[in-house]
């Protein structure tokens, strides 16, 4: 492969290298392209939401006479009263409406999918046996660890009581489980960040410079 002759690819490459130059030192080129990116992100997000307003509110209202849509349009516009000190309190109506939706749609699933299903998934036998009645020690040990570990973490987060005596030991175990959990998370963070770097390198060294 050879270096790209496409001007768009050059815009991409120069911008990316400038953004990466931040790791050496903050500089004017980085700041310029950082601003370009922030503007692009805001402009793109804005127009995608404009499309939502157009398709879901304006066209059905004007073309199909769905006047009930005046309610969300009115609430949406109220959000902008926060730029006028005197009327800023009106924006609370819209905020409250959105919070009502958040509460209304998430509460059931929170209990059903995240609490009950997860709690029932943690209800497993301490001893696992195969069809012939032989104890499967590895699975049994894992199950025991999962049951005790989940309970210990829950005890650790029980803030209404200062742990003492054996309960304190349980919270220690809960903390160890969480430390291992966070270690696993960190390992995944490293892997994820390297993937992002590889994606960027592929664009710079492959698409632009033609070295890959």
């Amino acid at each position: 492969m050879s270096i790209s002759t496409n001007p768009w690819v050059w815009i991409m490459g120069i911008g990316m290298v400038s953004l990466f130059s931040f790791i050496y030192k903050e500089n004017a080129a980085y700041r310029f392209f950082e601003h370009v990116f922030v503007g692009a992100a805001a402009g793109y997000f804005l127009q995608m939401n404009y499309v939502n307003i157009l398709d879901r509110a304006w066209i059905p209202l004007v073309a199909k006479g769905r006047y009930s849509l005046l309610i969300p349009i009115f609430l949406g516009l109220l959000l902008y009263t926060r730029f006028f000190k005197r009327y800023a309190w009106l924006s609370r109506w819209a905020t409250s409406f959105m919070i009502g939706i958040g509460v209304g749609i998430s509460s059931f699933g929170m209990i059903n999918a995240q609490l009950i299903r997860q709690a029932s998934a943690a209800m497993m036998p301490f001893l696992v046996k195969d069809k012939l009645g032989v104890i499967l020690w590895t699975r049994s040990a894992n199950n025991t660890l999962m049951i005790l570990g989940t309970l210990s973490v829950l005890v650790y987060f029980f803030f209404s009581y200062t742990p003492k005596g054996p309960v304190k030991e349980v919270t220690h175990f809960g903390r160890w489980v969480m430390m291992l959990t966070f270690g696993v998370a960190f390992g995944n963070v490293v892997m994820g960040r390297i993937s992002l770097l590889l994606g960027a390198f592929e664009r710079i060294f492959g698409t632009w410079l033609g070295l890959l």
Binding site: G102, V103, S106, S107, M110, I111, Q114, L115, Q118, A119, A121, A122, N142, L145, M146, G149, T150, L151, S152, V153, L154, Y156, F157, G174, V177, M178, L180, T181, F182, V184, A185
Partner: peptide
């Protein structure tokens, strides 16, 4: 196993907390 245990404990706690806040 280990991560699932920790995350499950955190998740259950989170669900209770989020529900209470809601």
């Amino acid at each position: 196993v280990v991560n699932s245990t920790g995350q499950r404990g955190i998740n259950i706690g989170l669900a209770i907390g989020a529900f209470a806040t809601a």
